[in-house]
């Protein structure tokens, strides 16, 4: 984590510890070309293709009843999964970050598991568990509960793939903060709940928000896992990403892009929020460092109290 002051030192550093300008600008050019081709162009392409048949067609594609129902279903699924995983993240982070117990490392590994499972395999696992041929299939049929090829299965699939986001974000932050503040609150007479609400939660709120943003982005955009368990019933079990695929297979040139542009806008919104959060926590950190006085080199330890550069998850 680099404080503003550290940056200044970089910038001020003398030419003999930097690359010659020729090399510097060559590297910048290559990197920018790559970023332009691989990041900027695909983004612009979505919006240009979306309106390639004009705005009227664009609005018609979005106002289509099937698209409208896909929007509603996507929001419903995110609305269920994000709060659940957020609650889990807080609960798990409290247990893992504030206490020591045998099997902690194993629990952490299990929390990471969904990152390394292919979304398609996730869907398949749910089919094998809840499907007609699945382990619980006969029992579910008997009681007339439909999970696969219905909304509950899609919710479960989304819960699985977005499971680690909030917890992974909170655990390192809470661990870095230790238990001293909570203990101080308790010596002052605060109970468990009060300590959590007034001490713990405020100090991890930005990390929590960050995790929720990432979790939400994935919940809105999940394709593979949801696709396997949805059954692709138009107007009933299509989310926005599934709707994009369906329109694509209908060989329409603009309609899938129109729907995709909604998702791309959400992605952009995610990026903006994420960047704002990083700046905010960054600035807090820089302030803390300035207060931290003298040896700049010693203070350049990675500050783990902020949500900077969270590595995207698998």
């Amino acid at each position: 984590m680099t404080s503003a002051r550290h940056r200044e030192r970089h910038a001020a550093s003398d030419r003999s510890t930097r690359e010659p300008p020729f090399i510097k600008w060559t590297l910048i050019t290559v990197a920018l070309t790559f970023a332009g081709l691989f990041l900027l162009l695909p983004l612009l392409n979505v919006f240009v293709q979306a309106v390639s048949k004009g705005w009227v067609f664009y609005w018609k594609s979005i106002a289509d009843p099937d698209t409208q129902s896909a929007i509603r279903l996507t929001l419903l699924i995110a609305g269920i999964t994000v709060p659940l995983n957020m609650a889990f993240g807080l609960v798990a982070a409290w247990a893992i970050a504030k206490f020591d117990f045998p099997g902690k490392a194993l629990l952490l590994t299990f929390i990471d598991l969904p990152f390394s499972v292919s979304p398609v395999v996730t869907g398949l696992m749910l089919v094998l568990l809840f499907g007609a041929q699945g382990l619980l299939g006969p029992w579910l049929q008997e009681h007339d509960v439909k999970i696969i090829f219905a909304v509950p299965g899609m919710v479960l699939a989304t819960l699985f793939v977005t499971f680690p986001f909030v917890a992974r974000e909170l655990i390192p932050i809470m661990q870095a903060q230790g238990t001293e503040q909570e203990q101080a609150a308790m010596t002052l007479g605060a109970g468990g709940w009060r300590t959590f609400w007034t001490v713990t939660l405020p100090s991890v709120k930005w990390g929590l928000l960050y995790g929720v943003i990432l979790c939400n982005a994935r919940a809105l955009g999940e394709f593979g896992a949801v696709s396997v368990v949805s059954g692709h019933i138009t107007g009933l079990t299509d989310t926005l990403p599934l709707r994009v695929e369906k329109l694509y297979h209908e060989f329409d040139s603009a309609a899938p892009f129109a729907v995709a542009s909604l998702l791309a806008l959400l992605a952009l919104l995610t990026l903006v929020l994420k960047t704002l959060l990083e700046w905010k926590t960054h600035r807090q950190h820089a302030k803390g460092q300035q207060r931290g006085a003298e040896p700049a080199a010693l203070n350049s330890e990675p500050g783990s109290d902020t949500a900077h550069f969270i590595r995207p998850s698998l």
Partner: peptide, 14 residues
Amino acid sequence: LSVQKRNVGFVFQA
């Protein structure tokens, strides 16, 4: 004169 050519020994804090 660049840092490389000054022939100074530098001991860093960290």
